[in-house]
Write a protein that binds this DNA or RNA. Structure first.
Lengths: 165, 165
DNA sequence: TATTGTTATACTCTATAACTATA
DNA sequence: TATAGTTATAGAGTATAACAATA
């Protein structure tokens, strides 16, 4: 069989699209997401579990509503995540005595330990994903992304304006 | 009712996560995607339509398989996209006389005109999404993302190594 | 009546796998 | 038999809305 295009010209994304930063953001963000899902899954977790544990380790104890709001998750979705974390003994749910509708969630010792492993996974993912960039470039990228994230989602602000009363 | 946290501390994403570049990439990429979907939809299109038209305007005519491979779309998914574009008279499908299994797809004049509008939407999206960054920063970000995209997906390479026979 | 957590439902997207017509 | 396009099916993921307990 004689192919019509001898070196079989590799299919390319049109540079019209490659010229668009938001197109690249979508593409690269998607690739990062897929890569992360696969890596967390090998450890029996998802990035969502990591997010919940990380949040609780900084602001624990908290109610489910606060966790969902902070991370931008649906409350129904969070229920399942907490079920899984609780089943592994990484978090605890208790009724709030002051408002018995609420559940107080808190990380356990095992949860803190698991968080350490998840941090390792995240660091390894960063390292692998950013391999074409040197140290300075990674910092630059991170800074620019942080500013975009903060602009499009106030919850991603690092230092909330310390309101002094 | 007296709230326990008087200024109602705003829910924040843990900085553990904000310190991870791939986390930011996922978040910002998602935000870009949602924003883009909404904007294209107002014009009666999706970013996928734009991608197909952009590819055809650079490499037309092509077969459906080539389009799908270049853009990374599933072939079944592409059928629907082409149906919609064809219905609007923006592309044409014809059987390839040399291989009657294949469909030759090509942009119409109306398709080229529509592509112009879609380019405008993409440019406006870029401008709006990157508003916290100045010109130099946007260029820097674009360059870094382009290198990541190219590394994780060879189809995103701008200049394919010109194979001289 | 409004809210918290929960459960159930529906809807979207995607991935898989038949199916046809050609080769 | 294998491939291009098409269609149909199933699965994951997400969003919506009903629900019970409490305020």
């Amino acid at each position: 069989m004689v192919p019509k295009t001898p070196p079989a010209a590799p299919p390319r994304v049109p540079h019209d699209l490659l010229a668009s930063t938001q197109f690249l953001l979508k593409r690269v963000g998607m690739a990062a997401k897929e890569r992360a899902l696969a890596e967390y899954e090998q450890a029996g977790f998802s990035p969502y579990h990591h997010a919940v544990l990380a949040f609780l380790s900084e602001d624990s104890p908290d109610t489910q509503g606060e966790i969902a709001d902070a991370l931008g998750y649906d409350r129904g979705q969070l229920v399942g995540l907490l079920d899984e974390l609780e089943e592994k003994g990484l978090v605890e749910r208790r009724r709030d005595p002051d408002d018995r509708r609420r559940h107080i969630v808190r990380v356990t010792g095992a949860g803190t330990k698991a968080l350490g492993r998840l941090r390792g996974i995240a660091a390894a993912l960063d390292d692998e994903f950013l391999v074409p960039l040197d140290g300075d470039e990674r910092e630059t990228l991170h800074g620019l992304l942080a500013r975009l994230a903060e602009h499009h989602d106030p919850r991603c602000t690092l230092q909330p304006p310390a309101a002094s009363p």
